[in-house]
Amino acid sequence: MSWTRICDYEAMVPERGVCALVGGEQVAIFRTHDGTLHALGNLDPFSGAYVLSRGIVGSRKGEPTVASPLHKQVFSLVSGRCLDEDAVSVPIYRVRVADGGVEVGG
């Protein structure tokens, strides 16, 4: 496993996402209210646009989520599963904090 440094952890706004280029892939990284980081593919499978990092972060029945900014389908930040349509999911990536920086595994 190789880790790619993205940005300073403190630069991440709680309950918002950012997007990073990791080995040519677009990865959406979110910092939730409790400080946890999550990383998903940035491609919204419903619209075909790379926009998930710009969705609203929230929770559904306790599970942290992001809603696509285009048509509002909700995805689990933990599993990448779409909670509105079972058959759809987005890839998840490993993410960690090291030396005050956010790193994505690939």
């Binding site: 939730t32 209210h33 609203i56 929230g58 929770s59 989520t65 809603a67 509002k72 909700v74």
Partner: peptide, 9 residues
């Protein structure tokens, strides 16, 4: 909870 795309906006 922590809100969602409905209540936050």
């Amino acid at each position: 909870g922590r809100g969602c795309d409905i209540c936050k906006p």
